[in-house]
Simulated assay, not measured.
Amino acid sequence: MHRRSFIAAALGSASVLGDTAQARAPRTRLHTGAALAFGTTVAVTVRHEDERVARRAIDAALAAVGRIQRLMSIYDPGSEVFRLNRDGVLGAPAPELLAVLRHARDLSQLTNGAFDITVQPLWEACRQAFGQGRPPSAAERERARALVGWRQVEASPERVQVRKRGMRITLNGLAQGYAADLALRALRQHGVAHALLDTGEFASSGAAQDRPWALGVPDPRAPGRLAASFALDGRSVATSGDYEAAFTRDFVHHHIFDPATGSSPADLASVTVLAPTALEADGLSTAFMVMGARCAHSLAARLGGVDVLTIDKRGQAWRSPGFPEPL
């Protein structure tokens, strides 16, 4: 399942937003780096006065992203997730994989199962059926849904296993966010205080010259147009949308599945989440797509540091009270 949060970085496009003191601060150069991971281009932009320091930091950040890709890809035969899906059991899992699996379990509990890493059989059933020009039959969907259940995944430092034969997991709703968090940590360890990371999810630190980092949220029904743009406030950002990987042109069938029904959720076209970490933002954006606008906003209001912008199938947008004001 390829998942991409098509938020466009709006660097330099916003009017000056920094305060007077920031505007008078010495200007430093922007340095960029990129690599392929998670089926997309991962980009790192940092602001630092020393190019050598900036380059070492960017290399370390991209290396952190690459490690998570190698551990958690569902397509790479050498990845731990691939081996778990193939064999049903994985010995001595990497600490990073365990950390993401623990977060996945916590998020599944928090959302009453709306978030579920075991939905991969549903995606595979849809890919196969729509590849033949038809939707999956009720029987095909039900067979796939019988293999879904987050409680059937056991994880410990000794091993990870799935209890049902034929179960498959996907960490595409978490791995990109986790990679962004680790990449940001690597940048800070190299002395970089100002950075924007795009792994498909966004993490940031500091500011871009005399203004904050700014992002645009695409209109889910109008390619090339923005539904919102805002300045980052230090939190991480993730967007999920029915347009990102749709099986049908009407967006009824797409890459996000409601584990309870086996079908794609029908309420929302797009969800953008701001959260303290990119891992949290990544998982919540998927869960909120499944939960629908009302439940998503209700849960976001109970979570510290979390805000959400939902856009439904009719184009109705709903911002939580702490969501940044539009530029």
Rank of each mutant, 00 (worst) to 15 (best):
R105S: 10
D50V: 12
S79K: 01
I117D: 05
A144H: 01
A94P: 04
C126K: 11
A34H: 13
R47Q: 14
E49C: 12
E140P: 02
T45Y: 10
I68T: 01
L147R: 00
R143F: 12
C126R: 11
T40A: 09
P26I: 12
R127W: 14
R143P: 09
R52M: 15
D106L: 15
A139D: 15
P95G: 06
A94T: 10
A99G: 04
A37T: 02
I74C: 06
I117E: 12
Q109M: 11
A37Q: 02
R134S: 04
Q69K: 00
E51Y: 03
V89G: 01
E51Q: 12
N112E: 15
A104N: 06
E96Y: 02
G133D: 08
A57S: 05
L122Y: 02
T40S: 08
A138T: 11
R143E: 14
Q128L: 15
E49I: 14
F130N: 01
R55D: 13
P121G: 09
A138W: 03
G33I: 10
Q22G: 13
T41K: 09
E142L: 14
T28R: 13
L97V: 10
A25V: 12
G133N: 07
F82L: 10
A99M: 03
A60G: 07
A125E: 06
E124I: 15
R56P: 07
M72Y: 00
A146V: 11
Q69Y: 06
A54D: 03
R105G: 07
L36C: 08
L30V: 14
E124F: 12
R67M: 08
V53Y: 06
C126T: 13
Q120G: 08
Q128T: 15
N112F: 15
P135C: 06
R55W: 12
V89E: 12
S73P: 02
I117Y: 05
D76P: 04
V53G: 07
H103Y: 14
A92Q: 14
M72G: 04
E49A: 15
R105I: 11
L101H: 00
Q128N: 13
N85H: 11
